[in-house]
C-alpha cells in the first residue's frame, strides 16, 4: 500500500478501479470509515494515473532479427 511506483500495465485497471470508487462514493452506501478508505485509495490512484500521463518521452523500439535469428526488440536509435 502507498507505493509510489506506477506499475506497467496498470493504467486501465487503475482507471477502472478509480471509476468504481467514484461510483461507490457517489452512491454513498458505504460507511464513513469505508468512504474515507476509498477516498484515500481513489486519490492515490488518480495521482498515479496523472503521473503516468505526464510522462514526456515517447519510447520507440524496433522489432529486428537478433544474432541467433530470433526476433528481438531493440532501441530504434541505437544501431
Amino acid at each position: 500500500m502507498g507505493s509510489k511506483k506506477v506499475h506497467k500495465g496498470s493504467f486501465e485497471s487503475s482507471l477502472k478501479r478509480l471509476e468504481a470508487i467514484v461510483e461507490s462514493l457517489e452512491q454513498g452506501k458505504v460507511s464513513l470509515d469505508e468512504a474515507v478508505g476509498l477516498y484515500e485509495e481513489g486519490i492515490q490512484l488518480s495521482r498515479e494515473c496523472a503521473e503516468k500521463l505526464r510522462a514526456t518521452e515517447l519510447k520507440i523500439r524496433k522489432l529486428a532479427k537478433s544474432v541467433d535469428g530470433d526476433l528481438d526488440v531493440t532501441d530504434l536509435d541505437k544501431e
Binding site: 482507471l15 478509480l18 471509476e19 470508487i21 467514484v22 462514493l25 457517489e26 454513498g28 464513513l32 468512504a35 474515507v36 476509498l38 477516498y39 481513489g42 486519490i43 488518480s46 494515473c49 496523472a50 500521463l53 505526464r54
Partner: peptide, 27 residues
C-alpha cells in the same frame, strides 16, 4: 488524449471530495 484524461482525473477527484464532504455533513 491525455489532456482529456487529466481532466477526467480532476473531475474524479472533485467528485470524490464532494461525495466525502457530503457524507461527513450528512453524518
Amino acid at each position: 488524449d491525455r489532456l482529456e484524461l487529466l481532466e477526467l482525473l480532476r473531475n474524479n477527484e472533485y467528485t470524490m471530495r464532494q461525495a466525502l464532504a457530503q457524507m461527513i455533513t450528512t453524518n
